[in-house]
Design a protein around this nucleic acid. Structure first.
Lengths: 144, 144
DNA sequence: ATATTTTAATTGTATTATACAACCGGAGTG
DNA sequence: CACTCCGGTTGTATAATACAATTAAAATAT
């Protein structure tokens, strides 16, 4: 295996993580805070989910997700549905408000990304998306 | 522009940021905490730098970097060098201890990444590295 | 030359994201 | 039924971060 590729990936990834976090926290884009967007996004992606599943997917402690979903519920973005088969468990699903807020935020982020990647070739964008996707999947397999 | 690529990039990036942060905070790899690694890494990359330059590069508030560099200095990982041309300014440069700690941590991260990307083709790894690098540069141009 | 403004950095304070540990109550199993 | 396991919440602590106020040096303007 070529070490240079690895080194480059490692280097760039470290920086990227910080930068993504920075723009994701930027209040100019949408109204949702970073953790809210992350969670709503994943509930939308996974479908109605309990805190455990969300925590695993996002590599967060269950207690963290518990608090964050409680906050989302309190703001009316998600609805807590008791699991009929298990008296302890719930799933959260997006409310209409939550769906609307998520979409609005997502559009804002997409617009920003679109501007950023304006000068990239279609081939680069497509390839980048696929590799990011593949990386996240690889990650899930090994770590999850 | 194809919206699907954008959407995929946006989606995966959101998740990726969370996952990278999670593994970067994992104490099993190296001894440096996340912010220490990030900073030492960038000092090593940029050469001796002041808090302002580091803050800009990492999109952090100057006060944050000031505290973090102070902590690094206190631990002996960096040395504070007064700027001879400006009585207010300093640069930080890596000490031997700092260099050693950084390298050790970096090796641990590389080993993990190597395992993760074991089954990828060399072409994929190389392409991923280049695209990440390009993305960070694009970012710097537009945002910085 | 002095006064004003700008700048590099630090420090005070508050917030958010997060983890770990203790706990509660329902589910599954011997 | 007793014991253990599991989903979730709550208490508590810490780390990362931002914004505002401050300090002192440098640059600029009068």
């Amino acid at each position: 295996m070529e070490d240079r590729s690895l080194e480059l990936i490692e280097q760039e990834m470290t920086l990227l993580a910080r930068r993504i976090t920075a723009i994701a926290s930027d209040k100019r884009f949408g109204t949702l805070d970073r953790s809210a967007y992350l969670l709503l996004n994943h509930i939308s992606f996974l479908g109605p989910s309990g805190v455990k599943a969300l925590a695993e997917e996002l590599r967060l402690d269950i207690s963290t997700v518990s608090r964050q979903t409680a906050a989302l519920e309190q703001k009316g973005f998600v609805i807590r549905i008791p699991d009929p088969r298990d008296g302890r468990a719930f799933t959260f699903q997006l409310s209409e408000t939550g769906t609307a807020a998520l979409n609005e935020d997502r559009q804002a982020r997409l617009a920003q990304l679109r501007a950023l990647l304006e000068e990239w070739s279609e081939e680069e964008r497509s390839s980048f998306g696929k590799l990011l996707n593949k990386f996240n999947h690889t990650f899930s397999k090994e770590e999850g």
